[in-house]
Simulated scan of single mutants.
Amino acid sequence: MITEIVTFALRPGTTRQRALELFEKTVPRWRANTALVRKYYLFDGVQGRGGGVYLWSTLEDAKAAHDTAWCDQAEALYGDRPRFEYFETPLIVDNTD
C-alpha cells in the first residue's frame, strides 16, 4: 500500500465552509476511482492550507490519479499547485471494526 499526502495553499480568506464546498465538488471523481482505497480531506484554517491523504494499492495508481491535468484543475479550484509526498504503508491499524 502507498500513502500519498497532497497539500496546497488555499486562497487567502478561505473559510472551513468554503473549503468544504470546494472539497465536495471533487467527491464524485474520487468515488468513481476504483484504484483509490481511501481518502481523507485536510483543512488548516490557521495556515490557510488544504489537501488530502490518500491510500492506494500502488504508487502507479497514485501518480496516475494526480497527473498534470489534475494538477491544473486543482490549481484552478484552490489557487495553488499541489505538492506530493509518498510513503510505503506496511501496516494499518483500523479501530473502526
Rank of each mutant, 00 (worst) to 15 (best):
M1F: 04
I2M: 05
I2F: 03
T3S: 09
T3F: 04
T3A: 08
E4Y: 07
I5F: 06
I5K: 05
V6D: 02
T7H: 11
T7F: 08
T7I: 09
F8Y: 15
A9K: 02
L10G: 04
R11T: 04
R11G: 04
R11E: 06
P12D: 09
P12C: 08
P12I: 07
G13S: 03
G13A: 05
T15R: 00
T15D: 00
Q17S: 15
R18G: 08
R18I: 08
A19H: 01
L20F: 14
L20V: 15
E21T: 12
E21M: 14
L22C: 03
L22Y: 01
L22A: 01
F23I: 13
F23W: 11
F23R: 09
F23Q: 15
E24N: 10
K25E: 15
T26W: 09
T26Y: 09
V27H: 14
V27Y: 15
P28V: 09
P28F: 09
R31H: 10
A32G: 15
N33M: 08
T34N: 12
L36Y: 04
L36M: 10
V37K: 03
K39Q: 14
Y40L: 11
Y40D: 10
Y41C: 09
Y41E: 10
L42V: 10
L42S: 06
L42F: 03
L42N: 04
D44K: 11
D44N: 15
D44T: 12
G45C: 07
V46W: 12
V46G: 12
Q47P: 14
G48M: 10
G48R: 07
G50T: 03
G50F: 02
G51M: 03
G52N: 04
G52M: 05
G52S: 07
V53P: 00
V53A: 00
Y54H: 04
L55K: 02
W56Y: 03
S57Y: 06
T58Q: 06
E60G: 07
E60M: 04
D61N: 10
D61K: 06
D61A: 11
A62L: 06
A64G: 05
A65Y: 01
A65I: 02
A65D: 06
A65W: 01
A65V: 03
D67C: 15
D67F: 15
T68Y: 12
A69C: 11
A69K: 13
W70M: 15
W70V: 15
W70S: 13
D72Q: 14
D72F: 14
Q73C: 10
E75N: 10
E75M: 11
E75L: 10
Y78I: 02
Y78T: 02
Y78Q: 02
Y78K: 00
G79F: 02
D80C: 07
R81F: 09
R81L: 08
R81K: 10
R81A: 06
P82I: 05
P82H: 06
R83P: 08
F84E: 01
F84D: 00
F84G: 00
E85A: 14
Y86F: 02
F87L: 06
T89D: 00
T89C: 03
P90E: 01
L91P: 09
L91Y: 13
V93N: 06
D94R: 05
D94Q: 08
D94Y: 05
T96S: 09
D97K: 11
D97L: 09
D97A: 13
